[in-house]
Design a protein around this nucleic acid. Structure first.
Ligand SMILES: [Zn+2]
Ligand SMILES: [Zn+2]
Ligand SMILES: [Zn+2]
Ligand SMILES: [Zn+2]
Lengths: 134, 134
DNA sequence: TTTCGATATGTGATGTTATTACATTAGTCA
DNA sequence: TGACTAATGTAATAACATCACATATCGAAA
């Protein structure tokens, strides 16, 4: 499979739920939203999420146990660096960005410590500009 | 309270469990270790963990739902920057470090985006030097 | 076209992590 | 003492995730 996927029925349903949401969703929230489409069990959601993560179409936010559609439309890969997420704890808005300096510093640390990195999580929690101004 | 704490009985028990462990522990693993000391319920552990987190004596590893004693002995605060963790997925070893450049870049992003940061998670998962060599 | 293997799906049960709600106990300080 | 706060005990429940097993779908090889 290439980076542009032919999604299965369940994968499409889960991806569309995330794509139309205005923020991250938990697996169980997705399940509830898709009950009308025949979803009955958590595993139907988790299996689709796993594939979508593989394909790079969504991200998992470790610090809030939730999932979000990738905000880089039509380019479902981040080959050039680690991704950071800024998560608003009030409205749920998630901003995704990549910073080469951060990526480089992490690589320097892992290289000089012999650590073989497989996945890196960078999540900033706080208040977005809108919510912080209120 | 200052940064050097007089811990309560439960807080001491939980902290000591983490301090003597060779890696991160889940709340329920701590609970099981402390049953002999009279612990019966998860809340006894979670309440102690919350306080120890407040005091900066332990850290929560969001990506593995586990807790680890701070590896900076006798200086339970990290006032000068964000902390990153390198977590070995084979042996569980956790290395804690702080990088001013990373901290600075995150601050630059939040400042220029009006984002009011409250807590930042940086977790690198992979294989430590020992496990990666095997 | 039949057979086979790989992938996807359906479903119930179970495992793991964390919180709510309420009662009780222990220290602190007018 | 009485009033207040912090800490603790306990049961129940909520929230998140996986296991085990059965069934279905699809494409390639024979
Ligand atoms: Zn993305
Ligand atoms: Zn917001
Ligand atoms: Zn620390
Ligand atoms: Zn290791």
């Amino acid at each position: 499979m290439t980076s542009t996927q032919e999604l299965t029925k369940n994968q499409s349903l889960v991806f569309n739920a995330l794509a139309r949401a205005d923020g991250p969703l938990s697996a169980y929230t997705i399940l509830d939203q898709l009950r009308g489409d025949g979803f009955r069990a958590p595993l139907q959601v988790y299996r689709a999420l796993d594939k979508l993560l593989d394909y790079g179409m969504i991200h998992r936010l470790e610090s809030i146990n939730a999932f979000v559609a990738c905000s880089h439309p039509h380019s479902h890969n981040h080959s050039h660096g680690m991704i950071a997420f800024a998560i608003c704890e009030k409205c749920g808005q998630v901003s995704e960005f990549s910073d080469d300096v951060i990526t480089g510093r992490v690589r320097e640390w892992t290289n000089s410590n012999g650590f073989k990195q497989s996945k890196t999580t960078i999540e900033i929690r706080g208040l977005c500009a809108t919510c912080g101004a209120a």
